[in-house]
Nucleic acid binder design. Structure first.
Lengths: 162, 162
DNA sequence: ATTAAATAGCACTGAACTGGTACTATATAG
DNA sequence: CTATATAGTACCAGTTCAGTGCTATTTAAT
């Protein structure tokens, strides 16, 4: 299984919660409130929010009446950014990053260039989905590429899905 | 970083090695030979090959003059299959699998259905790349979908890349 | 038949990573 | 000045993973 850490999962949930609430009241949201809404333990929520802040995806305000809010509009934040913020650069293997010296095979690895491309494919897929898309239900659809093959993509539902 | 275990990485390298060699001589390949070619430690290579065998991606022949070979043509094995064989079902989070009871939020998780779709996107991307594609260099290209957006995809190089 | 070489299938271990927690410092509204 | 919130760091425990070792089984060649 291609793993995404639990904290990243929480991050997606929290960002979605903030985006949902913010579209309604536009206020700041304390870690305490978000923990209650998301039903996640407060310390963990706090930790994740700090990470998201550090990456510039959230804005914060200290002191009493403080809290967190989205730094950008939900339409302008991709899943790739959220994942990168909590997991580091998106790459399927260490070899796929630009950092060298991580892999013994580096000199002669037969598939290095291909791996980078594979990572790019996955990254591209995540870049296509925006935070705003998570606020409302999505539907998986497919389009045909130049050669007639089906390419999975996403789109909004015209009716209700669930 | 979306992680793929080292063993899975090795699996991709080994499958590629076998596919490359097989297209030339068509013989069986012993774990020992593959370890030498891939420059990976023999015990680990052996372990990975056993896994790939168990998943039906490889065929084996015991005894002296034994070895491994591809169970299917390289054109008919997708990366998704290789990854699944070594990592389990492709899903970005446990929530995305069909197994229930793994997540406390299950009852009220606000983005469960979306997560399943996200996993599907990534899985779809991996299903589009076949083992045979790894044997020769790939190039990342982009096509336009119905709405005019660019969709990352892959294609062969007309010239030399490296 | 015997032997050598190869896969099959365990079970084990050491290390790294991750999720989670605690504590202290800092800022701010009232 | 105080209560409440974030900021930052450091730490701990559990789990997972890569890697190893050992034994059984199969098979070709002698």
């Amino acid at each position: 299984m291609i793993r995404l850490g639990k904290l990243t999962d929480y991050g997606l949930v929290l960002m979605t919660c903030i985006a949902r609430a913010q579209s309604q009241d536009g206020n700041l949201h304390t870690a305490r409130d978000l923990a209650k809404v998301s039903r996640l333990p407060l310390p963990t929520v706090s930790k994740v929010l700090k990470e998201l802040l550090r990456s510039g995806l959230l804005a914060s305000h200290r002191g009493i009446k403080g809290g967190y809010s989205l730094a950008r509009d939900a339409h302008e934040v991709s899943l790739a950014e959220i994942v990168s913020a909590l997991e580091g650069p998106i790459a399927l293997t260490e070899c796929s990053t630009d950092i060298s010296g991580l892999c013994d095979l580096e000199r002669c690895c037969p598939i290095k260039s291909n791996q980078q491309i594979i990572s790019q494919i996955v990254k591209g897929a995540l870049e296509k989905v925006m935070l705003s898309d998570l606020v409302q239900p999505l539907q998986l659809t497919a389009i045909k590429d130049a050669s007639g093959k089906l390419v999975p993509t996403i789109g909004y539902l015209s009716g209700r899905m669930q």
